[in-house]
Write a protein that binds this DNA or RNA. Structure first.
Lengths: 239, 239
DNA sequence: CGTTATATTGAAGTGCGTCAAAAAGTGTGG
DNA sequence: CCACACTTTTTGACGCACTTCAATATAACG
């Protein structure tokens, strides 16, 4: 299961056997967490980072009026809070969307690792910068794309990210959220999210049903979303 | 001028004399860039990162219809593209807003630095994670805050960030953009940005005039924006 | 002082939100 | 296997925040 992390890294850079071993050594423990459970609360001091092995997780912030914005989604192979390694506490909450399997990397062990493996450190650093690149693309979506294009873009992004870790089945992938939570990713109300999904469905571009996305026409969907995968840094380059 | 970087870092962590010296040594060159000039183009290979010494810079992405989203603002003391150290090319453009002074840190030198100073490395890593924390707060703004609250929030953020590097003069600070560019930060059209500014002005909360923000009532402004400075990580903690 | 960029205002249109209700799906216990 | 409660999805009607289009006013500048 931890292999998904290596798949993710190897899409972006070379990872030596030694580095893989070193990384394996700092990943320890294994937990199962039920769905819809807060894993990390904002502000609480952190001494380890969480690697997602199975399931899906979100990070979010909310306002006093109860409106919530999901700022990031995580798929297997992602660290949920590697940024917490340097931040030491989070500015947001982390919640499981589905039942999840996770493992841990202690900050102490990570510190040791970074003192011994500079290139591996850059790769880990890279993954936190990759999260930031996704944040920027979401800012573009939230600020400038219409609801339909936002949903289309999110589906394209997840398709590509899940493909890397081999969690796409044909044109379908699991996305364990309801329409309310999907709306919280998109900055839309549940009602409008429903209408946006209806449009994508009727145009034959994508379908969202029972926590599963089925892409009807990837090319058209990407056109509509103006999806440019370069922000996912899918080409291997030395870091 | 480079001292602003150290001010920024020392608000967040201890920085030893040795570390300061080491960091000074990798910062070289000095350039002046005119206003509204693209400094880094998306996709172009990078071999150095840029430290902003004076002026203000933005990063942005745009869509085919010409709409643009500014995803980040940078103030003196910020690295503009330290994330480029691990990403090796950017997913967005970087543009000066005002006339700027900058210096450079070569990636080769940074690599050497990270192999010698693990704690300093974590501090640099931290600054890229801090940028991501700001991205998340902007996602919350763009997804869930009203136009007025978004503008209020941005003014609060800049006030606090500029305060650290001593660029706030009483209740005022320079913000070298026009209303169109401000709208591109906020995900609003120029016309609506103008109306939002009018409301803030008439409520006595903040004024934006001639590229200068003057805060009328910081407390009320923060309340309106639901501004919670914790995402700026202003408390010094060991990283 | 004219020229151009920027700010401001008005009027009308639209995407998305709100409120409310119905329909469909899901899970549980009998 | 059905009955019931609960969650989620879907639809309709209406309202509002923001956009669009267009015109005017003001500031910036050589």
């Amino acid at each position: 299961m931890i292999d998904r992390l290596f798949k993710k890294l190897r899409v972006r850079d070379r990872l030596s056997e030694t580095e893989e071993r070193a990384l394996r050594e700092v990943i320890e423990g294994q937990d199962e967490i039920p769905a819809k459970q807060t894993m990390v609360k904002r502000g609480e001091p952190l001494d380890k980072s969480i690697l997602l092995l199975e399931g899906m997780v979100c990070r979010y912030k909310d306002l006093r009026n109860g409106r919530r914005q999901i700022s990031a989604l995580h798929v297997p192979g992602d660290f949920l809070d590697l940024h917490g390694f340097t931040l030491k506490k989070l500015d947001h909450d982390v919640m499981t969307l589905s039942r999840c399997k996770v493992a841990y990397a202690g900050h102490k062990q990570l510190t040791t690792l970074t003192e011994t493996f500079p290139h591996l450190t850059r790769m880990l650093w890279f993954t936190t910068n990759l999260d930031a690149a996704v944040h920027r693309e979401w800012e573009l979506s939230l600020g400038q794309r219409t609801g339909v294009a936002r949903a289309a873009h999110l589906f394209c992004e997840l398709y590509h990210r899940l493909k890397i870790v081999e969690l796409v089945d044909g044109a379908s992938f699991g996305f364990p959220v309801n329409q309310t939570e999907l709306g919280e990713c998109l900055g839309l109300t549940p009602v409008h999210t429903n209408r946006v999904l209806k449009e994508l469905r009727e145009r034959g571009l994508a379908q969202f049903k029972q926590a599963t996305v089925t892409i009807g026409n990837l090319h058209e969907l990407e056109l509509l979303a103006e999806f440019e995968p370069s922000y996912l840094y899918l080409n291997s380059e030395p870091r």
